[in-house]
Design a protein around this nucleic acid. Structure first.
Lengths: 337, 337
DNA sequence: TTGTACGCGTTATCAT
DNA sequence: ATGATAACGCGTACAA
């Protein structure tokens, strides 16, 4: 680590360390002449104040902890990008953690964050029903929590989501309008407000169409991609297979596409597909995939703005229960025409 | 921030704070009985030692700084995933920064890291020729730097790369073997050892085939996606257009695909394509895209292992010049058949 | 086995 | 306008 400290600069300049500190922080108490001397020397030595000492002293780290269930996912990546774009402007760093869709992992991460490592936590939950106890830990330590996408049902706070019910409703309606008689809903089987909302939208469209949906077509998937692939191939191998699919997760949409390719089933003639995804290349898939894209970047940047505002104002009320819902974008392409 | 400190625990238990500290760190000097008392209380209060105080005292933050030129890119994401998988095991956190392919940005980031915020920096450079001065700053402060993919030419250190020359050679040879007469090389125009190596491989294949490559077909692209798209459409609109493409970056491969779609040019009949990319869905594109996939996750995990080993051993020699090259995987699909 | 005292580098308070 | 000093919370050298 560096040997150059405020004390060191002070000695070189025959000043007290407090004077140097003030000069570096552009205090009005310090003469311009002294400021210049200090700044010049600091610059020439590439001095950078010790972040840990400062954080200890200030009781804040200027760092935000971000916890996502799946780091490789496009959606979460874009959210992080949105968070970062704002945080960077404000001098905040991001430490991103991956919970791997596992509540136990999530607990460990949060526990490790209880010691002043971060000033706030932005999280999309691994599972929304299982446990919320570890979220209370943060509250006890006065570390603000902000939720996005998979938000906590029974914990209050700022919650950023997208219009999942409506999007799923529109997509399902579209599939039914196109003449699909047997539409399957593919969701991740963890208990999630997001999955629930999308399923509700799916059901709502059926009801409006005067149709009864088949409960066997509400299918929950785990996180083992190979296993999921098998389940899908079995589903579509059946004579009485679905003729439409609403995939509530990118990986499921992709797996469906792959399954249908393997089985030489034609899209959209035999099966129509719409998938939630933030993939950039949906238009280049075979066939071009109809998608519901969440406003991921915007979700992140909006969240970060409010977060920083709250951290600056020290007005804890700013982190009280509030729900912000941003609209997703439904794009119809060849896979459901 | 939390009010529960070692001192607080010590008072509750009628012990000296040093005793509590030692107990928490499982020192052999402390009796099992005392340890249990301390640990029980700490656990029940969700005590977590203050990270900043510890970092200040220990002169290390157990945090690694990672700088990539493009965070949304699949390749870099997978590398980060690989880094994280190892770091997490070892109790290290990652702070990831995006240089946005901009050396000035990169300099700022590195400058901000000079104050003990991170114990080491893992970086893929924005541009390898422009400046290396900011890398020297890190060296001056004794912060180890490890390079991957876009490594520094004139700065020594640990360097993790992939066999770019060979991969590009194989892919180009494949295209020429398939009968392509006019293959274009699409690269990013920043000066990069990676781009250079791939171009060298491209040229090598031509020479071996007894062909002279057209220098006008070594095309450099910037970072404006829309502009790139235009350039490509212009390129393929020409009568004398290329009949083969080696894209040295994912975004260029995708842009090419899109350009050819727009122009209704048939792949592979009229133009064959191979692209460097770590995309997961290359087999589902229209047509399935031939790819060279770098061992991204492995690159990250290998790098992290060596890094942690070095940080633990305090043997600075471990960070001396060494080049590690991992093989990429070339997969032929419909786009070049 | 446990306690006392100090320093890591910074900033804020209180002098001068 | 500048200096001396204390404190943030932790771990360790030294003392008991």
């Amino acid at each position: 680590m560096s040997e150059i400290t405020i004390k060191f600069l002070a000695e070189k300049l025959n000043l007290a360390s407090s004077t140097v500190s003030r000069a570096l922080n552009d205090s009005h108490e310090i003469s311009d002449k002294t400021k210049k001397r200090v700044l010049d020397l600091a610059k020439s030595l590439n001095f950078q104040p010790n972040a840990n000492a400062r954080s200890l002293r200030e009781q804040k780290s200027k760092t935000i902890g971000v916890i996502v269930p799946d780091r490789v996912n496009n959606f979460f990546n874009l959210v992080i990008e949105g968070l970062e774009s704002v945080c960077r402007e404000e001098g905040y760093s991001l430490i991103v953690y991956n919970s791997y869709e596992d509540v136990e992992q999530e607990k460990k991460i949060i526990y490790s964050l209880l010691g002043g490592k971060v000033d706030a936590v932005v999280i999309s939950l691994a599972d929304e029903e299982k446990e919320v106890q570890h979220l209370e830990w943060l509250r006890e330590k006065n570390i603000p929590i902000l939720f996005f996408d998979r938000v906590a049902r029974h914990v209050s706070g700022l919650k950023y989501t997208t219009n999942d019910l409506e999007s799923a409703y529109l997509a399902t309606k579209h599939l039914l309008d196109k003449g699909c008689k047997k539409v399957a809903f593919l969701g991740l089987s963890n208990t999630s407000s997001v999955g629930k909302a999308r399923q509700d939208g799916f059901i709502k469209a059926h009801i409006e169409h005067g149709l009864v949906y088949d409960k066997n077509l509400l299918i929950g998937f785990g996180h083992d991609d190979i296993e999921n692939q098998k389940v899908l191939e079995k589903l579509f191998y059946k004579i009485n297979r679905p003729d439409g699919v609403l995939a509530a997760a990118e990986k499921l949409g992709i797996a469906t596409l792959r399954a249908l390719h393997n089985l030489r089933i034609k899209i959209p003639e035999q099966v129509r597909i719409v998938s939630f995804t933030n993939m950039q290349f949906a238009d280049l898939l075979s066939p071009a995939l109809s998608t519901i894209a969440q406003p991921a970047f915007e979700l992140g940047s909006t969240c970060a703005k409010e977060l920083i505002r709250g951290l600056k104002s020290k007005n804890i009320n700013l982190f009280e229960e509030k729900k912000i819902e941003l609209p997703s974008k439904f794009t119809i392409r060849d896979s459901s025409k």
